[in-house]
Design a protein around this nucleic acid. Structure first.
Lengths: 366, 366
DNA sequence: CTTAAAATTGGAAGCGCTTCCATAATGGCG
DNA sequence: CGCCATTATGGAAGCGCTTCCAATTTTAAG
């Protein structure tokens, strides 16, 4: 290590790196002293402020390097720099396994963007059906002094929650809001209605005429518009309303199986199952296997989301791809723009979806 | 809201809840004023300190309630109360899907425990094969001023990383360390060797005599001892060494399929595949399906971990259950004990595992 | 060369909390 | 009833940073 003039006289700055903890982490004042400028100037350099001449900036940066200095985020936050903390709120049924792949993909995309924009991300799972859920989300945001919160369905549609968070000065972005959150908050999502229409069309082209839709909870508005899309596709193909049977579950593997069993007992038996997400499709697939039905020979099944689940099951699921990572990243960008102060109307960014053809859907044996 | 004596004269405390942000969040001084005690006393109550008389404590708590006061964690941290931030570090191959279920289960358990003990948890995914991984983990810990870090495999075995983090005053706990981390750090895990032995025995009892072990990367020590267990079981059953074929992948679905394909081309063909985790088993299962092999009729397959993947595939996987949530929780407890100051030798808590019998393993057609 | 305007820079005041230390109240005993 | 050991309580000093504002240096006109 260099013999640093400014640091002389502060013997407690030494690092006893061998036997445990260092005596003291370098502070902004250490950097200021070492680079021979004022504390304020260092702060300017660190925060990309204006009015710093190039040679000065370089000197400061060198000192930062030499001392391996890192801004203390807690101090920065206290001093008014903003906590730079964002929370990603995911719904989950407490002890049931969360829809991990969906959540992970969103999180991954969000974290990556946070790294770039210098935010810190917390991911928190909140039991969606809990009546205290709203309060819990607020607690998360307020307790940690989050500057922003990213809401996922069905929280994206909770106008009350949105209102309350905003009243406490928290900036927001929503992922896939349906009617509720739309226009109330910055958001990102795909065109769910088109997604539903596309997958339905794909199936109808194989000639399927009895279709069942395995949906999620009704309050999940974006998933609900997938159903609207399915209905539209059928109408456009001139099919009667009773060609479609609709049943609802809760997006879990288990409920997919339960509903599939119910639907497969119908007569005439549907030849295709359109599921609201991949997990439910996987559940339906298991039931099909258990009954010895060939997929897609006896029964076509489609998923939604294109999470890894769709590739893991057999046969792999034909599904609708959602760019979840990109959605997570975009959500971060949206809140961060709000935090930076950009005003204006609530944005809704629509990202592209696509039907991913694998092997679980096709024509059926006569 | 109550007309609060102490607050009079501070008109800026009002909440303009309608049009956006509140003017100011209540501080500890507001609580002190309202309850008519000193700031220090409030702090004591908030932190469970000694020497506070019951009526005083109650008064303070009432004021907290009335003002909906929350400690500002940033301020507390700055003042020396410790950041109360923990980081859970997970390995992942950057763009490959992380083993989400494994990660989520650990995280869920950890978060739950954190809620109880008042810690804040960050979950961060670090590309394991990156040479800069160690530095990245250190950055996460240092930048956020984490008090503790929970390491998962293969970081649990990285003595260098452990050393460096400790040198910076970060407290640690490791999940499932193998040789490397064992004895260097507080840790929790199952008896992997016994787990491997148990599942191997289960299969051998069906009479399998040609077995392939689909392992993970060799550096993943705890998974490696599962293989030791398998070997031991075979030896105990008097089987020759060449009854076991060992191939390695990287714990992903994809590599499971790749290796399975290779192994199934062997002659004589193994009648059972023991996989190092559920994802690889799922990959192997897909390959079996693709080749028209009956499972378990033609081929038995077993997983490890008992993540939801094992229930989602068909047939559902016989696997070894790891109490992942409990492990996550225990890890938090371990670091938090260190932070609180309990000294002593490094602990290793062994949690119970169990063979979960489902349908992917059994006897084979003669 | 002056002189005002613009660009840099640093001093000082907190942000909300914990903690050290001094002060005040309480209690046990002789 | 006093006196000293406890037990309670509050005052004041920072923790490391951002930011307001005043001071200083440049630069651009005049």
């Amino acid at each position: 290590m260099l013999a640093v003039p400014g640091v002389v006289g502060h013997p407690e700055i030494m690092w006893k790196s061998e036997h445990g903890m260092s005596a003291r982490k370098p502070t902004i004042d250490d950097v200021a002293r070492l680079s021979g400028v004022g504390r304020t100037t260092v702060s300017r350099v660190l925060n990309g402020g204006p009015n710093v001449r190039e040679p000065v900036r370089r000197k400061v940066l060198e000192a930062v390097e030499a001392l391996d200095y890192r801004v203390n985020p807690q101090a920065r936050s206290l001093a008014g720099g903003g906590s730079r903390v964002l929370a990603l709120v995911l719904a989950s049924d407490l002890d049931a396994e969360p829809n991990s792949f969906y959540a992970s993909a969103l999180e991954l995309g969000a974290v990556r963007e946070c790294l770039q924009s210098g935010f810190q991300l917390f991911t928190r799972h909140v039991p969606q059906d809990d009546p205290a859920a709203v309060q819990q989300v607020i607690d998360i945001a307020v307790n940690q002094r989050c500057q922003g919160v990213i809401l996922t369905p069905p929280f994206s549609d909770n106008a009350d929650l949105i209102q309350q968070l905003r009243a406490r000065g928290v900036h927001l972005a929503a992922i896939s809001p349906g009617g509720g959150g739309r226009g109330l908050v910055d958001a990102v999502g795909i065109d769910d209605e088109a997604g539903g229409r596309d997958i339905a069309r794909y199936l109808l082209e194989f000639g399927h005429r009895h279709i069942a839709y395995l949906g999620g909870i009704a309050g999940h508005l974006s998933a609900e518009s997938r159903l609207d899309g399915v209905r539209r596709a059928m109408r456009e193909m001139g099919l009667p309303d009773d060609a479609l049977t609709v049943e609802r579950g809760d997006f879990t593997f288990r409920s997919g199986g339960l509903i599939a069993a119910r639907v497969l007992a119908l007569s005439p038996r549907p030849t295709a199952l359109i599921c609201a997400n991949d997990d439910m499709a996987a559940g339906a697939l298991s039931v099909a296997h258990a009954r010895g039905l060939q997929v897609p020979g006896d029964l076509s099944i489609s998923g939604f989301d294109d999470t890894p689940v769709s590739a893991i099951v057999w046969p792999p699921l034909t599904t609708v791809h959602q760019p979840l990572k990109a959605m997570g990243g975009e959500a971060v960008r949206l809140v961060s723009e709000r935090i930076t102060g950009a005003a204006g109307d609530w944005a809704f960014r629509t990202l592209p979806h696509a039907v991913v053809v694998r092997e679980s859907a096709g024509a059926w044996h006569a």
